[in-house]
């Protein structure tokens, strides 16, 4: 079963939030780049970056939510998550993207692209998980 969305997005997605990279550097959430995540994961002993490709985006019975099906990692494991339409994912080489960019910008002031089938999102797994 998909994970149920929370009623509000975490405050770190708000434009202007200060994010600390693994090397200690501070950046604003809207300034993060693909390389920041990749380099931070390289430093991490526990976490590694996986590619998660959007396979399907379906409507949900929960108001203002969608169910996104991802194909995760080299083994293409199918994972479904239920998130609010404004929830931002970071797409490789593109940046923040959500199912409803206008709503993300309205609620968080964070500029977003439209998340579409085929987009490859940055996600995390444990390095020890094999």
């Amino acid at each position: 079963a998909p994970v149920s969305p929370s009623s509000a997005l975490p405050s770190y997605f708000m434009k202007g939030s200060i994010i600390q990279l693994a090397d200690g550097e501070l950046k604003r959430v809207e300034d993060l780049r693909t390389e920041d995540f990749l380099q931070s994961a390289e430093v991490s002993k526990e976490l590694k970056i996986d590619s998660s490709t959007v396979e399907r985006i379906d409507s949900s019975r929960t108001p203002d939510a969608v169910i996104i099906q991802f194909s995760v990692g080299e083994h293409k494991v199918q994972v479904c998550v239920e998130v609010l339409v404004e929830y931002p994912f970071f797409v490789f080489g593109q940046g923040w993207s959500s199912c409803c960019p206008d709503r993300t910008t309205q609620l968080l002031a964070l500029s977003c692209a439209k998340l579409s089938v085929g987009d490859v999102c940055i996600s995390l797994t444990l390095k020890s998980l094999r």
Partner: peptide
């Protein structure tokens, strides 16, 4: 005197979803 307001700092990994598939081996 005005106390400086502390700004919250979030770790980079909080922004990335944990899509760890369950391995069945």
């Amino acid at each position: 005197n005005v106390e400086p307001r502390s700004v919250p700092v979030f770790p980079w990994h909080s922004l990335v979803p944990f899509l760890a598939p369950t391995q069945s081996d």
